[in-house]
Amino acid sequence: MQTVERAIMIPAPPEDVWPAVSRSDDLSTWFGAEVELDARPGGRGVFRWPDGTERQAVVEAVEPGRRLSFRWLPFQRTPEGEAVTVPSTRVEITLDAVPEGTLVRVVEQPAFSLPATLQTRAAATALAAIEA
């Protein structure tokens, strides 16, 4: 499957970039959504877009100052309040110290660790838990 890979050079050291990619307040300023992220392995993330779309994520790996990865749960809430399944992808953000500052790399790719039927079941279970 295809992978989305993007990178940008930021003229600041990784210790200045890290809070921006791991703290909810900072994330909310640039992500395009209002973000509540518990940046610890297993931590939850809730992303609310201005149009009312809501997606949730689970933090998978955290190396402070260096790497953050999370997996989007395979469903989202539409502005109309409906739950719709969407492709589950994994996002990995890596910070590399370079002479010019920090090279920020993002890789987003389909998370196919679970068979599709299990993913759907996991989504149903997660939704039921949220709505309880």
């Binding site: 993007r6 940008i8 930021i10 200045d16 921006a20 900072d26 300023t29 395009g32 993002v106 987003e108």
Partner: peptide, 15 residues
């Protein structure tokens, strides 16, 4: 992601 990363760069620069 292109849009987000550009916004991230601006955010860090502003900070």
């Amino acid at each position: 992601w292109d849009e987000r990363l550009a916004a991230l760069r601006d955010h860090v620069a502003g900070f």
